[in-house]
């Protein structure tokens, strides 16, 4: 389990490559990257604020849950904060499991909880002003499918 919260960029290819090797008991690796997207053509940059201390705690909790639930052989979360340009990578997750279903599901679980349970806040800087990105009801609703019966 490797959790990194950093302002510096990361090399997705190198991280994914390193993660995908060295797990002899894992037959499946899934990776996901989140990228700064410009929907309107006016986004200049994104600023991500976080809560140092709580961020790491929250990510560790989410990663521990996923590891236990899907018997992950390993999992990686890298999430950036600070100033990001359009097209830059914000974050990535990687999961390693014996089979693909567990690796895919665990990656989705990590993403669903990262969205609304990890203390990050995105602010968009556009040509006409700045604004905090609002949370989406669907992101909160997405957590419901993971509640155990």
């Amino acid at each position: 389990m490797d959790i990194r919260v950093q302002s510096a960029p990361f090399d997705f290819g190198a991280e994914a490559g390193a993660f995908a090797t060295g797990h002899d008991n894992a037959g499946a690796v899934v990776t996901f990257a989140g990228i700064v997207r410009d929907d309107t053509g006016s986004l200049q940059r994104m600023v991500i604020e976080h809560y140092p201390g709580m961020t790491e705690r929250a990510l560790e909790k989410i990663a521990r849950e996923a590891t236990g639930r899907w018997d992950l052989k390993d999992c990686l979360i890298i999430h950036r904060h600070g100033d990001l340009a359009v097209g830059e990578m914000i974050m990535m997750v990687a999961t390693a499991a014996r089979h693909r279903k567990a690796a895919f599901e665990a990656a989705e679980y990590l993403m669903d909880f990262l969205k609304s349970r990890a203390p990050f806040w995105k602010k968009e800087i556009t040509g006409s002003g700045t604004g905090w990105v609002a949370s989406k009801d669907e992101d909160e609703a997405a957590l419901g499918r993971w509640s155990k019966e």
């Binding site: 989140g34 974050m91 609304s116 990890a118 990050f120 806040w121 995105k122 905090w132």
Partner: peptide, 28 residues
């Protein structure tokens, strides 16, 4: 959040050292 764990507004502050207020999170 109370001492860096999410909490409810009716939660007790007994023994709490750090209280944080923020909007819904937008990670990922």
């Amino acid at each position: 959040a109370l001492d860096q764990d999410l909490a409810d507004f009716d939660a007790s502050l007994d023994g709490v050292r750090e209280v944080a207020f923020f909007p819904p999170m937008t990670g990922g």
